[in-house]
Write a protein that binds this DNA or RNA. Structure first.
Length: 412
DNA sequence: TCTGGGGTCCTAGGACCC
DNA sequence: TCTGGGGTCCTAGGACCC
């Protein structure tokens, strides 16, 4: 098998950059995106806008994105806004506008797809591209195609991105981060020891805060140190699956394909309250919020064309403990009342003596609504006996049904 | 001034079946 | 009375990612 050529394309400070297109006078300023709608810029009579400042923020939000100027103050994604306000009180605060980001996301992905159609979606601001065998990649390891991608993305959106090109997704992802913003990094397999091994282990996608902390406890800080660790010891220490993967990842080995299509596994809605709520004292408020979440979730399912057979709730208590309860339904649904009923059943199984910080509802075991309708239509009318080999049987069901008597006879 | 909202995947254990 | 082993489905929790 010839080596693959995989690119990872990552938009630079995506939300903040989209906002800077709309408010160009903020270019170069520390800007933080996050929080609710209340701090939208006010148009001034003479033109321009009056912006909210981070120091004026009060609430429980976190930073969604910080402009590079704001990052210089130590502000970063997922940081509590109140903490960010201490670091950069003068930073401009803008509300998130997901509709707009989704539109720019569609645009940059379409522009990239016109050049390299084998694309894997990795959320709103990232994609993997399989450049293997693409015209123009033969001579230069993909540099010209990557430059064309950057130009096309800028043409379509006015935004800059960073690209890593490598033999697999793992390495491409690491590389896209090496030269941000507006970066382009190519890596060949034989450069792993010199360019990848000196990096912190945390740079590997899949080594998070917990794993890197544990590794550090064993004196393993860099990818090269992880690569030098005994694989048997890694398996003993981190489990068969994760331990073996750590070893492979540290050596830059990754055979995962670029997946161009995937179905969602679950769809959910959750909300963090402005203040912690108590099941008894705030019963009416909680009940209304709970119903609202179910209605929104049902709307999401219907809009996206799915039905669900599993409904789960998620609670976060005031001490940040998270609890979840799930129930599997007799039949798929996208109906708000049915989801509300199932979620209510789940809620009854939780001790609600502590105050709640967050409430969420999730739909899982999804089926495309069209497929559910097809199956329903294939069923005989009510009251009629089912044929032995029914359309509802799972794939291969008829075969296993024929073999079933044999298994029964040999069982026990 | 602690710590959002939307996801995926993995593990472990129990129920139930053969 | 104790002893099996495999398989599937399901739940709960946790790590991780954007």
């Amino acid at each position: 098998m010839p080596p693959r050529l995989i690119a990872h394309l990552d938009m630079d400070a995506f939300y903040a950059s989209v906002e800077l297109l709309r408010y160009p006078d903020l270019a170069g300023e520390p800007v933080v995106i996050g929080g609710g709608r209340r701090h939208a810029p006010e148009p001034l009579p003479g033109g321009g806008f009056r912006y909210a400042r981070l120091r004026d923020y009060a609430g429980r939000g976190v930073v969604t994105t910080a402009s590079y100027a704001a990052r210089a103050f130590g502000v970063h994604s997922a940081m509590g806004m109140m903490k960010a306000a201490q670091l950069a009180p003068q930073a401009v605060l803008l509300p998130t506008d997901f509709e707009r980001y989704r539109e720019f996301s569609r645009r940059f992905k379409a522009a990239a797809a016109a050049i390299a159609p084998r694309i894997e979606d990795r959320g709103i601001d990232e994609i993997y591209l399989d450049l293997s065998g693409l015209p123009g990649t033969a001579g230069d390891g993909g540099r010209a195609v990557a430059q064309a991608l950057k130009a096309a993305v800028f043409e379509a959106t006015g935004l800059r991105c960073s690209i890593g090109v490598a033999p697999n997704k793992l390495l491409a992802k690491i590389c896209s981060d090496l030269d941000k913003p507006d970066g382009l990094t190519l890596l060949a397999a034989d450069e792993i020891p010199t360019r990848i091994w000196p990096l912190p282990a945390r740079k590997i996608n899949g080594i998070g805060p917990k794993a890197s902390e544990r590794l550090a406890g064993f004196g393993i800080h860099r990818i090269g140190e992880l690569a030098a660790a005994d694989p048997a010891w890694l398996v003993e220490t981190f489990g068969r699956s994760y331990g073996a993967w750590l070893h492979e990842a540290a050596h830059g080995r990754d055979e995962r394909p670029v997946v161009t299509h995937s179905e969602p596994v679950s769809i959910s809605r959750e909300t963090t309250f402005e203040r912690d709520l108590h099941a008894v004292r705030d019963r009416a408020t909680l009940s209304a919020l709970f119903t609202e979440l179910c209605v929104k979730l049902a709307g999401d399912l219907q809009r996206k064309g799915y039905v669900a057979r599993n409904v789960a709730i998620k609670l976060r208590f005031d001490d940040f403990r998270i609890v979840s309860r799930a129930v599997t339904l007799p039949a798929h649904t996208a109906d708000a009342a049915e989801i509300r009923r199932a979620a209510g059943q789940c809620l009854k199984r939780v001790d609600l003596s502590r105050r709640l910080r967050l409430l969420g509802v999730r739909a899982a075991a999804l089926l495309p609504a069209a497929e559910a309708a097809r199956r329903a239509a294939a069923l005989p009318p009510r009251g009629e006996t089912l044929p032995l080999f029914d359309a509802r049987a799972p794939a291969g069901g008829a075969e296993s049904a024929e073999e079933a008597p044999l298994f029964e006879a040999s069982a026990d």
